[in-house]
Design a protein around this nucleic acid. Structure first.
Lengths: 249, 249
DNA sequence: TATGTCCTATTGTCCGACAATCAGATTTCT
DNA sequence: AGAAATCTGATTGTCGGACAATAGGACATA
């Protein structure tokens, strides 16, 4: 029996010790994703989980906390844990949160919007149905009826309008991602609306043109007007004296 | 002293009891985002945090767990907590994770890619610099040199190619979001590459056309070839017998 | 310089405890 | 009987204390 020569090139994979609380999370997560814990079902109590997983309650709790942020689980009636499927809002929230933490500027957020929104509007134009048109027009009417000084309501309706355009494309992924971008830009939009006197009018005009294009299923018109809308937002930032290099908080 | 008449219209705001572990998270998070805890700085030890925040260590730990998932904090040397700024990879990871949990199908992921990637390629063409071109060509060369049966490497290089195209647009937000989409589609892509014999060749051809377009800063050519590339992926799914309605795991 | 040994600090995990609160059952009142 | 008040048990949020494992530093040794 001979010894193999030493091979200095050999590399060991680092051994990873997974802490128990992560295993707890993974175990519960796996049960949910595999469908063995159906949506709306109650999880075992913390004490039961202790017994089943054979770890201490403190450890179980640390694992559960992680699940709560991912939205896979919620504290329902009686504070019992209930299985839940996160929706568009959850995805948008966590994505915009992650982007914020990574440190992005208004310019970057606007740039991303300018890239995606016109394409979204153009493609959505080909998929729009009557109910989405109705929703858009209703939002638009609300905006027009809103007092020009009621900045908060104007912001809400502007957001809603974008959300409805995205909804017209009928894809939860793009809806969620664009909602995330809208969340990023929202604070800036609020400042623009507050600082620029004719902001409401300009927004309403762009929306009207967009609605017409979407109703006509005219993709290129939708793209054009969305582009102008976004460009106008950019001008609004300048007028409001908002530096594009400001980090989004 | 007279009693005020009852006002049945009065509405109380719901009082929200924020659990202590959430306050712990928010407190630390606020310190980091405000810059009072600089990147790379060590946080106090858990015991210190107990004293400073005046809560039990178990409570501190539950709060810290939440920060760890958001990537704002990591366990560094000596297991001490260190402040960290999450990067593109973290955003992509958490976003694709959130989307997966929300239950999206291959069709939806492909649809989102088909919407965003061509526009991204077109816009990126106008911003490409020499270093990005070099990175693209290097990745392309690697792919060509890869053994056609080495599926895993092909997948990796295909992903890398998309990542480099996105990097050319030079916006961390779009880079992160498209990376998230690529993560969603990756498992499907792997199956396609495994099942379709000439997958590597077709991918390489499309990449070559794309590189030419990007070098020429020809936005429309880039859009066209990216569209064809994505459409080809779709055909690959069909050939591989992969149902587009499959939930992404 | 590299290796082995001790010491301390810190984390990961455990145990046991208690107040607050919620769901459901039971009783009381009308 | 039906509604309101009350009791009861279960469950969570928080606490205090404990201990083994280990990382890092200091020190000694070859």
């Amino acid at each position: 029996m001979t010894l193999a020569p030493p091979s200095p090139d050999h590399r060991f994979d680092p051994i990873r010790k997974v802490p128990a609380y992560l295993k707890v999370r993974d175990a519960i997560e796996a049960e949910i994703l595999a469908g063995r814990l159906a949506e709306g079902a109650f999880l075992p109590t913390e004490s039961d989980l202790c017994r089943q997983l054979d770890v201490n309650r403190s450890t179980v709790r640390e694992g559960i906390r992680l699940l709560e942020t991912s939205g896979l689980v919620e504290r329902g009636a009686g504070k019992r844990l209930r299985v839940r499927r996160p929706g568009t809002g959850d995805v948008a929230r966590s994505t915009s949160r992650a982007l914020t933490f990574s440190g992005v500027t208004i310019l970057q957020a606007w740039d991303a919007l300018a890239l995606f929104q016109p394409q979204m509007a153009a493609s959505a134009a080909l998929r729009f149905g009557q109910s989405e048109i109705d929703a858009l027009e209703a939002t638009h009417e609300y905006l027009i009826d809103t007092d020009g000084d009621d900045f908060e309501t104007i912001v809400r309706h502007t957001d809603a309008f974008f959300a409805h355009v995205a909804a017209g494309f009928d894809n939860p992924i793009t809806t969620a991602l664009l909602a995330a971008l809208n969340r990023l830009i929202e604070a800036g939009l609020r400042q623009v609306i507050t600082a620029v006197p004719d902001a409401k009018t300009r927004i309403a005009t762009a929306q009207a043109k967009l609605i017409t294009a979407l109703k006509d299923q005219d993709a290129e018109a939708a793209r054009l007007w969305m582009t102008r809308h976004i460009d106008d937002l950019r001008r609004g930032f300048d007028v409001a004296g908002l530096s594009m290099d400001t980090l989004i908080v």
